[in-house]
Simulated scan of single mutants.
Amino acid sequence: MNPRLLLWRLTPADAGPWHRIMRGALAELQGLFASDWAEWIDRPECDFRAVLERADCWAAGWAQGQPLAVGRWEALDSPDTATLMGVYAQPSARGAGLAAPLVRQLIAQAAAQGHHRIQLDVVATNLRALRFYRRLGFAPTATPPLRNPLGLDEIELALDLAPRLAA
């Protein structure tokens, strides 16, 4: 029997597991997140708890409290647009069908909060991530690529949530 996928919202009480998974993400994928390893390596767990207090962060896994994939969204620049960030699946969980349901949950949560669009930035050379988000309906915007602090070009992708709001 296959295990059942669980999705759950992370709260500040989940800072420990989220702290561990995000430090692993930043170490493995240096340069592919807006934040980098050096920026977060020495930060205490309370800094991670603060992110969970302000963001809608979700986890996916086979057992509650043991996240294998995480992601979050926040309303940063515009009340109509949500920003997807920090989506990561542990290497051992890749290909297991966790990331797509997790991102769909984040999209649904942003739409339920009245956002009309969700966007994210992906490093232009991260072809795996670009293919993944395109499969979920995201498309490049007209915004020219931006150079991140590590000197890598990032492409903005977006998904219109208006059809989800009407449903």
Rank of each mutant, 00 (worst) to 15 (best):
G24C: 02
L161S: 04
G151N: 09
L152E: 11
E45G: 01
L165N: 05
Q109D: 15
L120I: 06
D42Q: 08
P67C: 08
L76E: 15
G61N: 02
E156I: 02
L161R: 05
L76Q: 14
P163M: 10
T83N: 11
H115I: 01
Q113N: 11
C57K: 01
R9K: 14
G71Y: 01
A167N: 14
G65C: 06
L52M: 10
R20I: 01
D80N: 09
A93V: 03
G137L: 10
P163H: 13
A162E: 12
P12V: 02
S35K: 02
E154I: 10
L161N: 05
L32A: 08
F33K: 00
A96Y: 03
T125F: 07
A139G: 03
F33T: 01
G31T: 07
P17W: 04
L76C: 12
E74H: 11
G151Q: 09
R72T: 07
W62E: 11
P17Q: 06
L161H: 11
W8D: 04
S78F: 05
L76G: 04
L68D: 01
A158V: 02
L84P: 02
C46M: 05
L136K: 10
A167Y: 08
I155N: 00
A75T: 12
W18I: 08
D153M: 13
L120S: 05
A69F: 04
M22F: 09
E39Q: 12
L152K: 08
D121R: 13
D153R: 13
P145F: 09
D42N: 08
L136A: 12
H19C: 10
G61Q: 00
E28G: 06
E154C: 12
W37N: 03
P17F: 07
E154L: 10
T83S: 13
W62P: 00
A96E: 12
P12R: 03
A100S: 12
L29A: 10
S78Q: 14
R128I: 07
L152F: 15
T83D: 10
L120H: 00
